[in-house]
């Protein structure tokens, strides 16, 4: 398994390069223009000059090579400098000062380093999207297990009903609905997320909870619905297997039979779904983030997509791709642990 993991990790590098190239060419092919949001009152000649100032006139391959250099040579230098200067972990090392003011990956829209903006967005994305994912999993697993164990019981029926309705109603409806009910009518929670809020005592923590609760609810509903359905289906398949009868026949308690034997064997599809979802935490939740103005990474991506900010989109999707590769690798390794019969070599 270790050799498998190492081989896959090494293979990741060319894969990522290939993916980044495909994404770059896709963005080149896609119609769109960073000048689209410039008012029509600005004459075309001025727009043309602005495009040239952004480096749009250069051949695509040169633009790609520039991005590669900035992303893999200059940005790491900035990162190392930051680590040796400010981070707690490596702060004791002497300052490296590798970065000498070379051109970093700059957003066309904000004219500032893309990575700085991404770093700025991570806290709210993790608070809201990350938390909702954890909440969703924590609710979904017990629901899935118990509904399968008591198939067609009232609990199962109710769970099925609620999760399926929850999944088939999109967040662009549930979000405004929660705002109307809880912010407008009841006035319990704010409808706008304050990204500058700092948690430093109990009161500010309560405030943070209050502003998080609505977006987390909307997102957790989707996650719960999805994962609990897969969990229930896989449990049902395994509960009927012969080994379950054997385990019961040799006198194991129900708890051990279900929670150890059956659960472990049912985890493969669930692990896949969870691993597929983790990178999307980073990707943020585009609709929910903009409904509640959480302004995390999802909102950043959609803003850049509409503004055709190629460096920004390119960098975000690249990080996203790297996370997808990483978590799918983790899922593959987990398969081997859950079911030792699975062999990759």
């Amino acid at each position: 398994m270790l050799t498998f993991a190492i081989r896959r990790l090494v293979l990741t590098v060319p894969t990522l390069l290939f993916i980044s190239f495909v994404i770059f060419m896709l963005l080149q092919l896609a119609p769109g223009d960073p000048m689209a949001q410039v008012p029509l009152t600005v004459p075309d000649e001025v727009k043309q000059k602005m495009r040239e100032a952004l480096g749009l006139g250069e051949p695509p391959l040169i633009q790609y090579a520039k991005w590669l250099k900035q992303m893999f040579w200059i940005e790491p230098k900035v990162l190392i400098d930051w680590m040796t200067r400010e981070s707690a972990l490596f702060g004791w090392l002497p300052d490296t000062n590798l970065y000498q003011g070379e051109l970093r990956v700059l957003s066309w829209q904000t004219r500032s380093p893309v990575m700085d903006i991404i770093v700025q967005r991570i806290p709210q994305t993790l608070w809201v999207v990350g938390l909702s994912y954890i909440v969703g999993i924590l609710i979904a697993l017990p629901i899935g297990i118990y509904s399968a164990y008591r198939q067609y019981s009232v609990f199962d029926q109710a769970g099925t009903f609620i999760t399926m309705i929850g999944f088939s109603i999109p967040p662009f409806f549930t979000g405004p609905l929660l705002i109307v009910v809880f912010s407008v009518q009841l006035g319990w929670f704010p409808s706008i997320y304050d990204t500058t809020h700092v948690v430093n005592d109990w009161d500010s923590f309560v405030f943070q909870l209050r502003q998080m609760i609505l977006p987390v609810l909307v997102l957790a509903l989707q996650t719960t619905a999805q994962i609990s359905r897969y969990m229930r289906g896989a449990m049902l398949d395994n509960l009927r297997q012969d080994y379950v009868r054997t385990a019961r026949a040799k006198g194991l308690s129900e708890a051990v039979v279900v929670m150890v034997h059956v659960l472990r064997n049912s985890m493969i599809p669930v692990v896949t779904v969870i691993a597929l979802g983790v990178p999307s935490i980073f990707g943020g939740a585009i609709i929910t983030e903009s409904v509640f103005k959480v302004n995390g990474i999802g909102q950043l991506l959609i803003t850049w997509l509409f503004a055709n900010d190629l460096p920004g989109i390119m960098t975000l999707t690249f990080i996203f791709a790297a996370l997808i590769l990483l978590f799918n690798l983790i899922a593959d390794i987990l398969y081997g642990i859950l079911d030792p019969r699975i062999r990759y070599d």
């Binding site: 700059l106 829209q109 004219r111 500032s112 700085d116 903006i117 700025q120 967005r121 990204t195 909102q299």
Partner: peptide, 26 residues
């Protein structure tokens, strides 16, 4: 385009000055 600090925190004559600028947010 490379002067991001200047572009985010311009010195002006107007009634307000920028204290904290988070692009595309607040």
């Amino acid at each position: 385009p490379t002067c991001s600090t200047e572009n985010f925190y311009p010195v002006g004559t107007g009634p307000f000055v920028v204290e904290d600028f988070r692009p595309n947010d607040v």
